[in-house]
Amino acid sequence: MNVPPVPGLLGLDHFEVDRDHPHIAIDHDVCETRCTQRSCLTVCPADVYTEHEGRIIPDTAACLECGTCVIACVPEALSWHYPDGTHGVQYRYG
């Protein structure tokens, strides 16, 4: 089966985006001084994290809320919690 790249896969899903309250925040000082691996760029199954001019930027809108990044990331660099109730991904199959 021909599988589309991640944005196409995420396009299959339903998200209730909470633009006013992003649920991911990066402490760039910690991120840029203590992390050498930048695993977030590869482990996130939704490609939430991208790098722009050396800085990691999260796109919180299409997050699958698995929590992988929190475990892979160096402590203190990432503030991550679940989106407010009713927001975020809504699986129709699961």
Binding site: L10, C66, T68, R92, G94
Partner: peptide, 11 residues
Amino acid sequence: DGELAEYGAHL
């Protein structure tokens, strides 16, 4: 001939 309907991730 299947149709992709959802993509998900979970720990």
